[in-house]
């Protein structure tokens, strides 16, 4: 057999050459499309006298934000307002991921319960919550919090924990001592409060996503061969230990990849919070957009924020997936 010469490899008939050529063409096309859109946008905006650029981020925002994890004042610059919004998004996403995972795992395990009532409840829950659009669920929870709960002046209380239209208020460590909430004229004074907006977003996300996570966990458990459980039983392991030491470690390999998608969904769905007045990054960007008119810039910031959070979540989950995957030798 004759080996093709090195020169011949770079002919039009060579697959490697054609492959490379197509890739170069594709990159050029994409590059041109991006350049065309960017150039065109700038040109059109200039022609219409619309000012552009990210310099506005340094100017004072001038608007208050209802809830913030960091000290924020209306005279702080726009970038800090965006930071408050990003932190609010992350807060609801991270807590949501934690609670939804816990809740979803219990649901998934519950579907295998020997108790018919537990099985039935878990089934009914899953089918109800995953089949109602999440925006409706958010609006529903918000309605529950704002319509059903009592006014600030006469909250429902369990010890120092108060529930009212101002949200869920609880004692909190303020300036070196425990501060206990008490009804004021217009809001809870002292302690700390989770606003109805935050609670509605959190509950909407948790109830919706945990239904999906429950199904993923169920599928993962179902994928563990029956022989494993039987073997564990034969060894005399109690049911709890079987779940923790035999079933879950094997199920995790099936669970992690689809679970990653659900985590990404929680983060992205949190942007629906704007409908019920939770000051997430989309809400802040909306306000900034309207105060400054920098539509392209503000939308880019939102896209960047979700891209970065989603990619970091995916990276972390991929790393974890590698860790729990079967070590093939």
């Amino acid at each position: 057999m004759r080996r093709p010469s090195a020169r011949k490899r770079w002919s039009w008939r060579s697959q490697a050459f054609r492959g490379l050529l197509w890739q170069v063409v594709a990159v050029l096309l994409v590059g041109f499309a991006v350049w065309f859109l960017a150039h065109n946008t700038l040109e059109n905006m200039r022609a219409r006298g619309i000012q552009s650029g990210f310099d506005f981020l340094k100017g004072p925002a001038g608007f208050d934000i209802g809830e913030s994890l960091i000290p924020y004042d209306a005279l702080d610059p726009y970038w800090k307002a965006f930071l408050v919004g990003i932190l609010n998004t992350l807060r609801v996403a991270i807590i949501g991921i934690g609670v939804a995972t816990l809740f979803g795992t219990l649901l998934g395990i519950g579907r295998f319960s020997a108790n018919a009532i537990v099985r039935g409840l878990c089934y009914a829950y899953t089918e109800t919550f995953r089949n109602v659009p999440i925006l409706l669920q958010l609006l529903f929870w918000y309605l529950v919090f704002t319509e059903v709960l009592p006014p600030v002046a006469e909250p429902v209380s369990v010890g120092p924990f108060l529930l009212s239209k101002a949200g869920f208020s609880f004692p909190w460590w303020v300036e070196g001592r425990w501060s206990v909430p008490a009804p004021g004229a217009f809001s809870m004074e002292g302690g700390a409060s989770a606003t109805p907006e935050f609670m509605a977003v959190l509950m909407g996300l948790v109830f919706y996503t945990s239904a999906f996570i429950g199904e993923i966990v169920r599928a993962g458990i179902a994928a563990v061969p029956k022989g494993q459980v039987e073997a564990a039983s034969a060894l005399g392991l109690p049911r709890g230990l079987q779940v923790r030491k035999v079933i879950l470690p094997q199920a995790l390999r099936v669970i992690i990849p689809p679970l990653t998608s659900q985590y990404l969904n929680i983060t992205k769905n949190s942007s629906l919070a704007v409908a019920i007045g939770y000051p997430d990054v989309v809400s802040i960007a909306n306000t900034s957009l309207n105060n400054t008119g920098r539509a392209v810039e503000c939308i880019s910031i939102i896209m960047l924020v979700y891209l970065v959070t989603s990619l970091s979540t995916a990276l972390f989950m991929n790393w974890y997936n590698k860790r729990v995957a079967i070590q093939e030798r």
Partner: peptide
């Protein structure tokens, strides 16, 4: 020290007001 609750749609903002969420 007023606290704004910001809604995208005016219907949502007025709805929250009429439900008693805002003073």
């Amino acid at each position: 020290d007023m606290k704004p609750v910001v809604f995208e749609k005016i219907e949502a903002a007025t709805g929250a007001y009429f439900s008693g969420r805002c003073a």
